[in-house]
Nucleic acid binder design. Structure first.
Lengths: 189, 189
DNA sequence: CCCATTGGAAACCGATCAGTTTACGGAGAA
DNA sequence: TTCTCCGTAAACTGATCGGTTTCCAATGGG
């Protein structure tokens, strides 16, 4: 019956890495990660090249789920403006979670500082995907400058994430009017 | 004649803390800080309670200079809209520096995660000062919702900082139109 | 039964962490 | 000169870092 009761060592390590590095920062120790996952260091280093590799893999595994959770379905027939707003509504909903500290992909890039770190590259790709979505919708919606609008939107997205991460304010009722102002300015109605 | 040729140990420590924690993150070691400052650990621990205390003092000392570098003078007789744009022009100019990695106050909050850390508190105050300036100018300029506008502006400010920190894009020509769109939406002309 | 593979526990590596202490050298006062 | 005081370098604490290695118990196939 319990065909999936026991996640593999690999899965437990990926989960622990995602949870602990998000909560405590990327400087969390390998011992703590392994202990949380219930996996020996020996096994960990057989499954992953290094701690950085584990972190990158952990971000990678969640990347597609993260993006698809934010994006609307491809065929919802809603106008581009609403599809863009949908992303920010989802992000704001996530920000309501009790232990939310901002987008993990942004945070890991800031903490690592090294853009060539494999985990930074994964994070960079996630942001690129999101920007590409904004740009495509901006074009579809007839924005006056789709590329500018996409860059403005990802700017607000990351700003909201960073502000949420430092618990700066509640952001209630802040994001939607901001995005709306940018969409209006781009003549995207 | 060289009345100020030699900064005090305290000053050199504050400078080293500001430089190295910005470049390498808050996890830089005390040994490295003292070595860079040319001060023994013993002296450091006589001047400061702890590493965290040194970091907080280093942020504190630069705080007023940072804010005044961004803000226009109180009596420049420019309209509020221009005074707000001035802040973002200054920030964009700073972002052009070769080793710019985003606002140090935002970064330190994200890295520390603990909002009760003395250094986080200093950073928080800096952001509050900036927000207060935006709000005052928004009121002065007759914005439809000064508080909302101020929160939108600090959101963009931190977003730009975070994006610059991860070297996401050049941001050339990105900030000004974004801020302008928000000012327009608030009927602040 | 025996043996070979697996993987966990834990010791171990050299390095570094924050923080304390010791020992020494140099400057000023007597 | 001799004594005192100050700050330095450096050793040291015990803990942790990323990563490796050793040892042993459990497992499964012959």
């Amino acid at each position: 019956m319990t065909t999936e009761a026991m996640p593999s060592s690999r899965e437990r390590l990926l989960e622990a890495a995602a949870t602990l590095t998000y909560r405590d920062g990327v400087n969390i120790g390998v011992d703590a990660l392994c202990k949380a996952a219930g996996v020996s260091k020996r096994s960990m280093y057989k499954l992953f090249e290094s701690k950085g590799d584990l972190l990158a893999a952990s971000l990678e595994e969640r990347a597609s789920a993260y993006v698809t959770a934010l994006l609307p379905t491809a065929d919802d027939n809603h106008p581009p403006r609403e599809r863009i707003l949908h992303v920010f509504e989802q992000a704001e909903a996530q920000a309501g979670a009790p232990d939310f500290q901002g987008c993990r992909y942004l945070v890991v890039q800031i903490e690592l500082k090294d853009p060539s770190h494999p985990a930074s590259r994964v994070a960079h790709r996630v942001k690129e995907n999101l920007t590409a979505f904004f740009r495509a919708e901006a074009e579809q919606g007839g924005a006056s400058d789709p590329d500018l609008l996409a860059r403005q939107l990802i700017l607000v997205f990351d700003g909201a994430s960073a502000r949420a991460g430092i618990k700066a304010d509640t952001q209630a009722g802040l994001i939607a009017p901001t995005v709306a102002a940018l969409l209006d300015a781009a003549d995207m109605h």
